[in-house]
């Protein structure tokens, strides 16, 4: 049994302008100790899926329209809010993108970390603070004892993200969801934070969902990749296979748009067009208006998630052709 299994998840946002279908039938699994990277442009539904798993979706306007989220075998969507709350922070935790805005500006970092022990373990505030010092040491924040009483704005960007990590790790959860954890950081700090996260994940044997659009980060730490487009998974595969040969034109486009040193001076490749409007997703394959390989069938039929290999899926009518073209 996998640690987490998302089955046919549908999420909608009901707004005055209409219904935006943010997630349209997502399936993925994460095992203990495994890292799943979820890749996609803004608006592809990768963060919304994560929020649905955590149970922090804004309801309304958000609404889970269907599917199951099995965590350690039980469907989280069937739990009462109070039971769900006890899972959050304790058994699964989330690291957000912008640590400065995600930490409370008027509470000291020690209080914010310690609070988890106070609420979930019934510890006193003083003991909670002592735990906070331990955790800050663990994420290698220098002089943790002196800095525990400081406020978020007194830390640098990298240190703040370490505090977010400390907070997520506090109760040693089984699953961590990291929503673009390094996007707001300098490149050198990015690597440090990512290494730290990967190291702690190994130590605690946690499952990790890494949401990102940074393909460089993915290659180093992920075991498998799910590429999302318009609320659907378009390709899912072990990380090395995808880098060797993508089986979906969208994945291919993403990989080709990474700047490379040996192509210095040449124009950078970019996928044409814009992501689709979620209130009006094109019929057939959602990617067809931007796809260089699109045929008539792509404009009428939604491609099923076809099995490329036992560990690999692609939602493209022409996955074979794409795969062949990229292997060549």
């Amino acid at each position: 049994m996998p640690l987490l299994e998302v089955r046919d998840l549908h999420v909608e946002f009901r707004t005055r302008e209409g219904v935006a279908k943010a997630v349209n039938g997502v399936n993925y699994t994460v095992d203990e100790g495994e890292t799943l990277a979820v890749l996609g442009e803004s608006g592809s539904g990768k963060s919304v899926t994560a929020q649905a798993i955590m149970g922090i979706l804004d309801v309304p306007p958000g609404k889970i329209a269907g599917g199951e989220i099995l965590f350690k075998g039980r469907d989280l969507l069937k739990l009462k809010e109070e039971e769900r709350r006890k899972v959050r922070g304790a058994e699964m935790a989330m690291i957000f993108q912008d640590a400065l805005s995600s930490l409370n500006p008027v509470l000291s970092v020690g209080e914010q970390i310690g609070e988890l022990f106070v609420v979930h373990k019934g510890m006193s505030r003083k003991d909670g603070k002592a735990k906070a010092v331990e955790l800050m040491d663990r994420v290698r924040i220098p002089a943790a004892k002196e800095r525990v009483g400081q406020y978020p704005h007194q830390f640098s960007g990298g240190m703040r993200q370490r505090i977010m990590i400390a907070m997520a790790l506090a109760l040693e959860p089984n699953l961590i969801i990291a929503d673009e954890p390094t996007t707001a950081l300098d490149v050198t700090v990015q690597a440090q934070v990512m290494d730290l996260l990967a190291e702690l994940q190994r130590e605690l044997n946690m499952g990790l969902i890494l949401i990102t659009h940074d393909l460089g980060v993915v290659a180093d730490v992920a075991d498998k990749i799910a590429v999302m487009y318009a609320g659907r998974i378009v390709e899912q595969a072990p990380v090395h296979e995808i880098y060797k040969a993508p089986a979906h034109p969208y994945t291919k486009g993403l990989l080709e748009s990474i700047p490379r040193l040996d192509q210095k001076g040449q124009e950078l490749f970019a996928i044409k067009g814009l992501p689709p409007n979620l209130m009006n997703i094109p019929p057939g394959c959602a990617f067809n208006p931007r796809c260089p390989m699109a045929q008539d069938v792509c404009r009428t039929d939604v491609p099923p998630l076809a099995e490329v290999s036992p560990t690999r899926r692609s939602a493209c009518h022409f996955w074979k052709e794409t795969l062949d073209a990229s292997t060549r």
Binding site: M54, I56, R85, G89, A90, M94, F96, S102, N104
Partner: peptide, 10 residues
């Protein structure tokens, strides 16, 4: 964002 974090902390 920090309210969302607080909710995510359970």
């Amino acid at each position: 964002d920090y309210v969302r974090t607080a909710i995510a902390k359970g």
